[in-house]
Design a binder for these strands. Structure first.
Lengths: 153, 153
DNA sequence: GATGAAAGCTTGTCCTA
DNA sequence: TAGGACAAGCTTTCATC
């Protein structure tokens, strides 16, 4: 992928705000005619700059209103156990984000469930049963203060 | 909004995976003909179950490859200062997520920047300059292990 | 990067169960 | 109350400049 120019960035910004915008509207917004605009979108997709298009669903209205942040400490920091940990949590739909971090914890997970009871079952049956998990510190989210899907580009 | 039935959930799941799926394809996937399918999608949108459609962009390829998790402690837990904090960080595009939590920290922020130098400037000039921010503990993300946009519904 | 034309999609109306 | 058929008016997309 060659470097992104200003038009590319405008395309990206627009699609981060509304992925269902028609190509006609997008082209008008970024100051191109429809076909070069679509060509750029396809190139951005092929280059992996635009990874996918998703619908954002309201967790509460869909019945999964609880968010918990779990900070996990591993027994060892070996690559193998870490990869195995990732492989396992990728299969758990409740885990919507996972970050491997420097610092006192090894991983931070964002976990979405219906309620505390369901979270508790997840933690007890799934999370702490992973071999490499030594300690889990949970922070229950009282309020989602911001949730943005626009990267600062 | 009346309760979601199984067809609604299938629609939601499909659009969480690919928001640009045509209505024709979606209808086939959930076993409806196009017009009732579109009607359901519109109802889900109007009810706020589907909030929006967004393009997911690869941060590294777009030049913002650093993710930092910042755990913030406030000087006071009063509603006013908390709301003011939220209002402020909502204006910062680097902050892509913010959660108010129970526990030892008051807020956890996900912050996206180009590199550590830029993060440092953000923390020094923006974050710690907010009145209510008492202490910031940063966890630098070495690897994004999972990033899912499908809620477990 | 623009134009224009063919193919296909969206979406409204009306009909049926 | 919910799904299906159909058709007008769009959009997408490709060849060509």
């Amino acid at each position: 992928m060659p470097k992104l120019d200003d038009t590319d960035r405008r395309i990206i910004r627009a699609l981060q705000q509304n992925a269902r915008m028609s190509n006609l509207e997008l082209a008008a917004k970024v100051g191109l005619s429809p076909s070069p605009c679509l060509r750029r979108v396809r190139l951005l997709e092929e280059a992996g700059v635009i990874e996918r298009y998703v619908a954002i669903v309201n967790g509460e209205k869909a019945g999964v209103g609880l968010v918990v942040l779990a900070r996990v400490q591993f027994t060892t920091q070996s690559t193998d156990t870490t990869l195995q940990f990732l492989e396992t949590i990728r299969r758990y739909p409740e885990v919507t984000e996972c970050f491997l971090t420097t610092g006192e914890c090894d991983a931070v997970l964002k976990i979405v469930t219906a309620d505390l009871h369901e979270y508790w079952r997840f933690q007890a049956n799934r999370l702490t049963s992973i071999e490499t998990v030594k300690e889990v510190k949970t922070d229950v989210v009282m309020e989602v203060g911001k949730q943005s899907f626009e990267l600062p580009i």
